[in-house]
Every structure is written in structure tokens, then in C-alpha cells.
């Protein structure tokens, strides 16, 4: 397979972002390889009632 890319003009006027979080990326540029991973845990069991916070 032959994969040819020709980059012509790229001109962005304005970028407005509220938040970039949890292994996200805003990239103004070129890249070969990007790998992002995220684990976010809010199950119903995350509601802890009582004085012991740490699981046994």
C-alpha cells in the first residue's frame, strides 16, 4: 500500500474551548502516533455511608 498525503494551507481563525481534561489533547501540529486511555469509575457502590471509607 502506498499512502500519500499532501498538506495544503491550514488556517484556523479562533478556537474556544471550555475544558480539556482526563487525558484529552488539543494538538496544533502534526503527529505520528497518539494513544490515549482513561478509566472513570462512578458506580452506584461509590455511595459510601458510614465511617469506614477504604474498602476492605
Amino acid at each position: 500500500m502506498k499512502f500519500c498525503v499532501t498538506n495544503h494551507e491550514l488556517f484556523v481563525g479562533e478556537i474556544h474551548i471550555i475544558g480539556v481534561s482526563l487525558s484529552s489533547v488539543v494538538l496544533i501540529g502534526d503527529s505520528d502516533c497518539i494513544s490515549l486511555g482513561s478509566a472513570f469509575d462512578t458506580p452506584p457502590e461509590s455511595l459510601v455511608i458510614g465511617t469506614t471509607l477504604v474498602p476492605l
Binding site: 487525558s23 503527529s31 494513544s35 482513561s38 478509566a39 469509575d41
Partner: peptide, 9 residues
């Protein structure tokens, strides 16, 4: 680029 994040709520 390799980014990773873990959050426990």
C-alpha cells in the same frame, strides 16, 4: 504521545 488517567469517584 501516550496519555492515561484514572478517576475514582
Amino acid at each position: 504521545m501516550t496519555l492515561q488517567s484514572r478517576v475514582k469517584h
